[in-house]
Nucleic acid binder design. Sequence first.
DNA 1: CTAGCTGTTATACATTATATATAACAGCTA
DNA 2: TAGCTGTTATATATAATGTATAACAGCTAG
Lengths: 129, 129
Amino acid sequence: MFIELDFESEDPIYLQLTRQIVEGIAKGELLPGDALPSVRSLAADIGINLHTVNKAYQQLKQEGFLQIHRQKGVMVHPDGIPKASETYKATLAKNLRPFIAESICRDLSKEEFYKICNQIYADFARREK
Amino acid sequence: MFIELDFESEDPIYLQLTRQIVEGIAKGELLPGDALPSVRSLAADIGINLHTVNKAYQQLKQEGFLQIHRQKGVMVHPDGIPKASETYKATLAKNLRPFIAESICRDLSKEEFYKICNQIYADFARREK
DNA sequence: CTAGCTGTTATACATTATATATAACAGCTA
DNA sequence: TAGCTGTTATATATAATGTATAACAGCTAG
C-alpha cells in the first residue's frame, strides 16, 4: 500500500487516507485478512499524527471495511466488505446527484459521463485478480 | 425555485444552496437570463444570513453559472453555462473515483452503478423541455 | 517478569471553515 | 430622496481538523 497525501488539498487528511485504503481494497492490493500498519507506525511513516490515522481507521471500521483488535492490530475485515445495501445505494444516489446535475448543465452527455466512469472502472479492473 | 435546506446535514448550507441552484438549472427550471432573488431577500426567505447566500452566489459566479451585476442583481448566465472542459472532466473523474472504488468493494456491479445513475438522469430528463 | 508493542482515552492547543450579526459604501432607479 | 442592488469590513461563536503529550490495559517476545 502506497499512501500519497496532498497536504495542500482542501480534503482533510483523514479522508484522503480512508479513500486510499478503500482504493487499495478495490484494486485487490489489500485482501480480507491483510494486516494494516499500526496507527503509530503509519502516522510516523507519512508524517502525521496518530489520532489522524486513528480517525480514518475508526471510520473504516464503522463502515465495515476494517476489523480492529485492541492488541492484535488492524486488518481488512476477514469476512470481506459488507455488500451494497439499499441504504448504501440510496446514499450513493444522493452523493452522485450533484455531479450529474452539473454535468447536465455543462452539456456533458450521459454517454460521455459513462465514458469517464468506464475509464475509472478500467483503472481498477486492470489490477484485480 | 424551491430551496429546501437541511440544517442538520453535515453539508454546509452554502453548498446545499449551490447544489440546489445547479439542480434547478439542470432541470430547466432556471433558464439562462432568469433572475435570481437578491442576496438579502433569499436570505430572509430561507432564514439564513445574507453572507451565506452571497458565498453560494460567488462560487456559482466563479464556476460560470451565474452573472452578477452590482446593481441589476443576479441571473443565470445569459450566455449559458460553460461547456465541460477537459479540466472539468479530469476533476469530475477525480471526484467520482472514491464512489466507484467503494462500490467495487461492496460488490456493486458496474451495471447496478449505471442503473442508479440512469435513475438520476431520468429524474432530470423528466422535467427538461 | 520485564520491555515493547497494540488500540484507546483524555486533555490541551492552534488553525481553519462555517455561519451569524451589524454597519457602511457606491451606484442605479423610481 | 428613498429604496433597492452587490460589496466590503469588522466582530463573534461554533465546529471541524490536526497536532502534541500523556497515560492506560492487554497481549507477547525475550
